[in-house]
Simulated assay, not measured.
Amino acid sequence: MTGLASLTWLIGTQALSDHIVAHVNEMVEAGTEYAQACNEVTDAADAGEAWAIAATRQTWDRRPDTDEDDAPIRRLYVLERTGNTVVVADLDLDEDPQANRTGGLQPQHSRLGNEEQGAVVDVELLNLYDLRAWNPFEHLLPTAAVPAAGTTGVGE
């Protein structure tokens, strides 16, 4: 799922705005002009580029046209994003539920990282995947309006 409209539907206006503003601020601190940073981040988010939309608490599915050797994990969950890397856990629960008790990687993917802590990979790897779900921390707030979750943000 990509595009600013889809992302807005998925996580809500406020959460997406906070996410985009954080990236814009990072670019401005690195020396990019504000207007240029706004354009680059919003264009990249609209195009679904991983560097612009990857965040903690996301689920990504490998694209059907992606070679399994290039992206060995079919479904992954982003445990944490730090700069240009993400810590991911294997979510191929339908293949071997016992392998995911710790939320880490399945044994066949152990070369990618520690099974209990997940794998640290470059954020660009997510370009081989499609974003399927995003549960930002704002979802935990009782006043959050998130259309995809069916919340109105009023009295919940």
Rank of each mutant, 00 (worst) to 15 (best):
R57F: 09
A45V: 06
A148S: 13
F137T: 02
L91I: 00
A149E: 13
E124W: 03
Q98T: 15
W51I: 02
V86K: 03
E138C: 03
L140E: 14
D61R: 10
R111K: 08
L76D: 01
V120D: 10
E49S: 10
A45S: 12
I53Y: 12
A71E: 06
P97N: 08
T66F: 04
T85I: 02
A22W: 10
L112C: 04
V121M: 15
T152F: 12
S17T: 14
D46Y: 11
T82D: 07
A148W: 03
A47Y: 03
E80W: 09
D43P: 04
Q108V: 13
V87A: 05
L79C: 00
R74A: 10
A52T: 02
I53V: 14
A30C: 05
L126N: 03
A45P: 06
L140V: 01
P142I: 06
A144I: 04
A30I: 00
D130R: 12
R132P: 06
R75M: 08
E138S: 13
L128I: 00
R63H: 08
A148G: 01
G48T: 05
D18C: 10
P147R: 10
V21W: 13
T82C: 00
G155S: 15
G113K: 04
D122Q: 13
V78R: 06
P147F: 12
W134Q: 09
S110N: 08
P107Y: 13
P142N: 14
E95L: 15
A149M: 12
G31S: 04
L131W: 08
A119T: 05
T85M: 01
D18Y: 09
D96H: 11
A144S: 11
N127F: 01
L16N: 07
D65W: 00
D69T: 08
T143D: 14
F137S: 09
G104R: 03
Y129W: 06
S110R: 14
D43Y: 07
V121K: 12
A89D: 04
W51N: 04
E80V: 08
D69L: 11
E49L: 14
T59D: 03
Q108C: 15
P142L: 11
A44T: 07
D122V: 10
L93D: 05
V78H: 02
D43S: 15
R81P: 00
T152I: 09
L140T: 05
T102L: 14
N84I: 01
L126M: 06
A133D: 12
N84L: 04
Q108S: 15
L105Y: 08
Y129R: 01
G150H: 07
W51A: 08
A119G: 10
A55N: 10
A148P: 01
D92I: 02
R111G: 00
R101T: 12
R111W: 15
A35K: 11
V146H: 03
L126C: 02
S110C: 01
D130K: 07
E80L: 12
M27T: 01
P107W: 15
P107Q: 08
A71C: 02
V88C: 02
D18W: 09
P136S: 11
I53M: 07
V41L: 07
T42R: 12
G31N: 01
P142D: 14
P64I: 05
A148N: 02
H23Y: 11
Q117L: 14
E40G: 11
D67L: 02
M27S: 07
L79Q: 13
P136I: 00
T59P: 00
P107C: 10
W60D: 02
L16D: 10
L105A: 09
T143Y: 11
D94E: 14
Q98G: 10
E33D: 11
G155P: 08
A144Y: 05
V28F: 06
